[in-house]
C-alpha cells in the first residue's frame, strides 16, 4: 500500500515535471495576476500596501482555479482512470497523490516565496509570518475542495468555465479565513488558523471519499 502510494506520487511528480506547461503554468499565472494589482492602483502606494495580503490571496485563488482543470483531465481522457478502476487499484491512493502533487506544484511555490511577493507589493514585513502560515493552512484546502468539483465536471461540455464558476463559492470560506487570519495574527489571535486547520482536518477525512464516488460515477 505504502509502496503503491509512493509509486503513484513519483509518477504524478514526474508527470508535472515533464510537462513544463503544467508545472510552470500555475506559478507564472500567479505572477501575472500579481502584476495587475499595482498597475490598476495607479501610483497610490498606500492602497497597494493595504491590499497586499488580499492581492496575494486572490492571485493564489486564481492560479488554483486555473490549474484545477488539469487535475483529473488527462487520466480521464486517455483512459488510465478506467484501467485503474478495472484493475481494482485503490482510488484513495490515486486521489491523494493527485491532490498532493497539485498542491506541491501550484501552492507550495506561492507559500515559499510569499514573503518576497509581499515586499514586491510593498506590504509591511510584519505580516510576512502571518501570510506564510495562512497560506500554509489555506492552500491545501484549495486543492482538497477543488478535487471533488474537478471530478464532477469531467465529461461536461465547456468544462473550464463551469469548473471556475462552481468552485468559487466553495473557496469563499477559505479565502475569508485566510485573509482575516493574517490581520489577527499580529494582534496575537490565532482563531482563524484554528478554524482553517479544523476545516482542513474534516476535509481530509471526507472529501477524498466523495471524490472517489464521483470519479466512479464519471466513468459510467
Amino acid at each position: 500500500m505504502i509502496k503503491l502510494f509512493f509509486l503513484f506520487l513519483l509518477k504524478d511528480f514526474k508527470n508535472y515535471l515533464l510537462d513544463s506547461n503544467k508545472s510552470w503554468f500555475a506559478i507564472s499565472f500567479f505572477l501575472l495576476c500579481l502584476l495587475i494589482f499595482p498597475l490598476t492602483y495607479g501610483s497610490s502606494v498606500d492602497l497597494l500596501k493595504k491590499t497586499a495580503i488580499a492581492s496575494i490571496w486572490i492571485c493564489a485563488l486564481f492560479s488554483n482555479l486555473i490549474s484545477l482543470e488539469s487535475l483529473f483531465k488527462e487520466d480521464y481522457q486517455n483512459g488510465v482512470l478506467l484501467q485503474y478502476r478495472i484493475n481494482n487499484i485503490p482510488f484513495f491512493i490515486i486521489v491523494m497523490t493527485k491532490c498532493i502533487s497539485h498542491w506541491v506544484f501550484t501552492s507550495l511555490p506561492i507559500i515559499f516565496f510569499s514573503p518576497i511577493f509581499l515586499i514586491f507589493l510593498s506590504g509591511s514585513s510584519n505580516d510576512a509570518m502571518g501570510l506564510f502560515f495562512s497560506l500554509l493552512f489555506g492552500t491545501p484546502l484549495f486543492s482538497l475542495v477543488g478535487m471533488p468539483i474537478a471530478a464532477l465536471t469531467l465529461g461536461a461540455s465547456a468544462r473550464g468555465p463551469l469548473l471556475i464558476f462552481l468552485s468559487i463559492p466553495f473557496f469563499l470560506p477559505i479565502i475569508i479565513f485566510g485573509v482575516l487570519g493574517v490581520n489577527s495574527f499580529n494582534n496575537g489571535s490565532y482563531s482563524e488558523y484554528y478554524l482553517l486547520c479544523a476545516i482542513l482536518s474534516i476535509s481530509i477525512v471526507i472529501l477524498p471519499y466523495i471524490t472517489i464516488k464521483i470519479l466512479w460515477e464519471s466513468l459510467k
Partner: peptide, 22 residues
C-alpha cells in the same frame, strides 16, 4: 449550469446530486 452541461447523458444525474450534496 451543471444540469445544462450534461443534458445529453445520464452522467449528469449523479453529478447534479453530488454537487447538491457538497
Amino acid at each position: 449550469l451543471i444540469m445544462e452541461s450534461f443534458s445529453y447523458s445520464s452522467k449528469g444525474d449523479y453529478t447534479f446530486a453530488y454537487l447538491a450534496l457538497i
